[in-house]
């Protein structure tokens, strides 16, 4: 791998994950996320790609009995975000997330985007308005909603809702953004919009994207990791993975022999 000009923003080191029922879902994962690059996680259903993604902002802490082993380290401060002394809330303030299905809050468009800032105790109205506008522009939604910021977010279309959720995640200036199959609940046009948006964000933000759709991984990501049954099989530049995979299992998946 030629990664001379790459900085590692975060990396999983010998990372294992166990669900509360004892299921060993992730086995010795080593995966770097390069700064301002998009890394895609691909693999068949149940391979652990969403589990890995959700470990990066400690979503598994919400359900009792789940267990992490190993480290996920963030740079430049070298913090192991899985450390028991690190507050998951602090982790989530640095790493934001966009979910599989759009999940806006039952609030206005404005309040949805401002939510993260409000949680951080921000009360300055001027600043909130500026940040909301900036985030909505960043999510390519501003022109569609600028005249109805006080409307309920549920009134937006599915694709718009998902861009709203991206704006909500962007508004807090995260260091890393996680996307958990962000287009799987959307129609092709809305999917294209989201992919275009991710392309726009490329180079400005470190992103980790779980996708079920290999074409999508090929279109949007700089790096791709292939996972199978809880193992990380291969991680390389996206072009290399898709053109000349080193591992037989990766090749089988990419050519459609495993699905």
């Amino acid at each position: 791998m030629a990664n001379a000009d790459l900085t590692t923003k975060a990396e999983a080191r010998d990372f294992n994950f166990f669900y509360s029922n004892g299921h060993h879902a992730l086995k010795n994962i080593n995966l770097p996320l390069y700064e301002n690059k998009i890394t895609a996680l691909i693999g068949p259903s149940g391979c652990g790609k969403s589990t890995l993604l959700r470990s990066f902002n400690r979503m598994h802490d919400l359900y009792p009995g789940n267990r992490y082993e190993g480290e996920i380290v963030m740079h430049p401060d070298n913090t192991n975000i899985l450390d028991a002394n690190v507050d998951p809330i602090e982790v989530r303030m640095r790493i934001s997330m966009v979910f599989q299905k759009p999940n806006p809050f039952p609030k206005s468009i404005f309040e949805n985007v401002a939510y993260g800032l409000r949680v951080r105790g921000e009360k300055n109205k001027r600043l909130l308005a500026d940040k909301v506008e900036e985030a909505l522009k960043g999510a390519a939604l501003w022109d569609e909603v600028k005249d109805r910021l006080q409307d309920l977010a549920f009134n937006l279309s599915g694709g718009q809702q998902q861009r709203l959720c991206i704006a909500r995640a962007l508004a807090t200036d995260p260091e890393i953004m996680l996307f958990d199959e962000p287009t799987s609940a959307l129609d092709p046009i809305a999917t294209a919009n989201i992919e275009e948006l991710m392309n726009d964000l490329r180079g400005k933000l470190t992103m980790l994207v779980v996708t079920h759709n290999m074409q999508q991984a090929a279109r949007v990501s700089d790096y791709t990791a292939y996972m199978y049954l809880g193992d990380l099989i291969e991680h390389d530049k996206t072009g290399d993975i898709f053109i000349k995979p080193k591992d037989k299992r990766t090749e089988d998946y990419i050519t459609g022999r495993i699905s």
Partner: peptide, 19 residues
Amino acid sequence: SMREGAYAMGATRFQTAMR
């Protein structure tokens, strides 16, 4: 998913419950 959305933003339990 709605709770997860709030927690993912760094909300506490109380903030998620109330807001």
